[in-house]
Simulated assay, not measured.
Amino acid sequence: MPVYKNEKAKGDKKWFYQFYTGEIVNGKRKKITKRGFKTKKEAEKAMIEAMAAYQKGEYIEPSKMLFRDYLQDWIKTKRNLGEQTLELYESYMRTHIVPALGHIPLAKLTAHDIEMFLDSLHEKGLSAATMKRIFSVVNAALNAAEMKDLVPKNVANKVEKPQVTRRRELVVWDPDFVSEFLEKTKYASRYWIAVYLAVMTGMRQGEILGLRWSDIDFEKRNLTIQQTVNRHREIKAGAKTKKSVRSVAISPETVEVLKEHRKMIMEERVALGPAYQNNDLVVCTQFGGPVTQRAIQKVWNSFLKKTGAPKITFHDLRHTHASLLIKQGVHIKVISERLGHSSVSITMDTYGHLMPNMQEDAATGLDTIIKTKVSRK
């Protein structure tokens, strides 16, 4: 194998490969050389891949590969990401990253290019949080390029990351307002049940839209989240993360509300007969099909307008659910499990500020179990 070691090279990446393509260019045999490998084995593996790509006509010299072409290859390796996260990455690439940086060869991308890119995002009026997420995509892609020896180093590491100085304040409703809101909107739309489930279970919108009747155990009063509906109305098995596939206990009243809703669904199913699309969905169109997130948003906006309620997002109902549990003194681990967070630390980081009296309550509670009287003689 034409793999060599350059003892004079700086650092520990001394191995390189070199092979002839079989073509003659300007009277000379064309060869391809790639340097910067830590071990002979790494160099051999990379050379075999490069030779195979060249024979298929898919080989692109690293110095000529455009950043947009690299990103397309890189995103294909990220299939382990959740579907919504993957869609977000692709959206950032399509809308912001590729238009600004895609024309630059990967090997020639500089820290200055990325700094100018961040400035352009700021000029567009994007929030610091959004800029940080977009930068994270660029940084992750370049980290992978460095690991694969496509670039000597990740130039994004030289760029100051966008700082999020203040997280968006969570807007939640108090229990009395939630009760009033649900009562006023109950018969305003068939999709009211989605709002009710968001408040009473803390489920994500995609999880609510994917919930089936077969996922609900009315006797044991719990439901299991096993599938979701994405923004394209596609039913997908699983959930956002492994922890998101979970069981959630439901209240006796929630059981009754669901049974009442099921009666309406069964009547529609009988009326339509063979024309009914039986997806077994709790939240569905009158024909039984999956509901679009846009349809839910439209109904949600109409509810806010009808009641004059403070404007919050549908997702804020999930935060409202968490706040209601906190007010009841439910343990943070239980809240984390209900929400399907990957760790309790995420729950604490998100809702810790809603528990300002926990320290005080803990200290005061000690007096109930330690019966020591202090007196002076």
Rank of each mutant, 00 (worst) to 15 (best):
A188E: 13
T313F: 12
T95F: 02
A271C: 01
H341E: 08
N143L: 06
E267Q: 14
R233T: 11
R133V: 11
G289Y: 04
A309P: 04
K305V: 12
E42Q: 15
L66V: 08
D361S: 10
G82Y: 01
I208L: 07
K186M: 09
L101Q: 03
K132T: 05
R190A: 08
D73S: 13
D119S: 14
H319K: 11
D316G: 04
K311V: 12
Y59T: 06
D113M: 06
Q293Y: 06
R318Y: 10
Q297V: 07
I114R: 01
E180P: 00
E83T: 07
Y54K: 13
K28Q: 15
A128K: 04
P162M: 05
F177M: 02
K5E: 10
E61D: 15
L197N: 01
I326W: 11
K30M: 11
F181G: 01
E146S: 05
I312Q: 11
A198S: 13
Q277S: 14
A100F: 13
M131V: 08
F117N: 07
V291N: 00
T201K: 04
A362K: 00
V257P: 00
E160K: 15
L150Y: 13
V195R: 00
V257F: 02
A237L: 13
E180G: 01
S63T: 14
I48C: 06
K327N: 10
V155S: 00
G125R: 11
Y59H: 04
P62A: 11
S302M: 15
Q205K: 12
K14E: 07
P175M: 09
E360F: 02
K40D: 07
V291P: 00
I312W: 06
D215C: 14
D149Y: 12
L142Q: 01
H315A: 15
K5W: 09
G22H: 13
L324E: 03
I208Q: 02
L109Q: 03
A145L: 06
D12C: 12
P62D: 05
D149R: 13
V245N: 07
A111L: 08
Q163F: 05
D280K: 09
K259L: 09
F314V: 09
S214K: 14
R204W: 05
M147H: 11
N222K: 08
K28D: 08
K306G: 10
S120I: 02
F37M: 09
D280F: 11
Y17C: 07
R231A: 04
Q359H: 08
D119T: 15
S63Y: 07
K371V: 03
T313I: 09
D367L: 00
E42D: 15
K240Q: 05
N6K: 14
M200H: 12
E49M: 13
I332Q: 02
K327E: 15
S251L: 10
A144I: 05
